[in-house]
Design a protein around this nucleic acid. Sequence first.
DNA 1: GAATAGATTGTCT
DNA 2: GACAATCTATTCT
Length: 199
Amino acid sequence: MQLSPLPRSFYDRPVLTVAEECIGKLLIHVTTEGIAGGRIVESEAYQGPEDLAAHSAGGRRTRRTEAMFGPPGHAYMFLLYGMHWAFNAVVGPEGHPHAVLIRALEPSINRSLMAARRKVAEGSVQLTNGPGKLCAALALDGSAYGADLSGDELFLADGPRGAVGVSPRINVDYAGDWAGKPWRFYERKNRYVSVPPRG
DNA sequence: GAATAGATTGTCT
DNA sequence: GACAATCTATTCT
């Protein structure tokens, strides 16, 4: 395993392919406090404009969704419920508002720094088992909006890959038929997955 | 363990 | 003014 950013070509593919291949990859954020990161163990695909669960549903292009319409390999950050940030990787060619939501990490790099940011015990599952939590642990917020993922501060790197499972997405019941799409990917038997699937 | 309510703010109608 | 791809504390069983 080495800590070099994945090439932009990794993101310039169908969103379901990228979401599935994100499992096991390392998400890394370097700040003045130091480096922090972990293995991605849960992700979801959002395929606007036809996907009603995506913020870009119906081709809505606003200030908030602008990054989704840009070229692949950039960060799409958004604030939800007024207090939590979530991190997405923009996927697919420019003009196609697709993104992969990173829902959970397994802390691996500089766990003590992440534990301090989250104010929970190092080694606790609570560290990164949810979109808002992992952003807090990595100190990701709106300032990372649109960041280039091929830079050396915020990027994905190759990592050991485990067995991947599939399930419907979480908390998108409002999306009608799209809510049932098996567009969530997770690593089997990993305790950091936010919502353990049945079985 | 499961269910529920409250927090809190940028963005859109 | 309403709502959101959530988290946490609290209140049940």
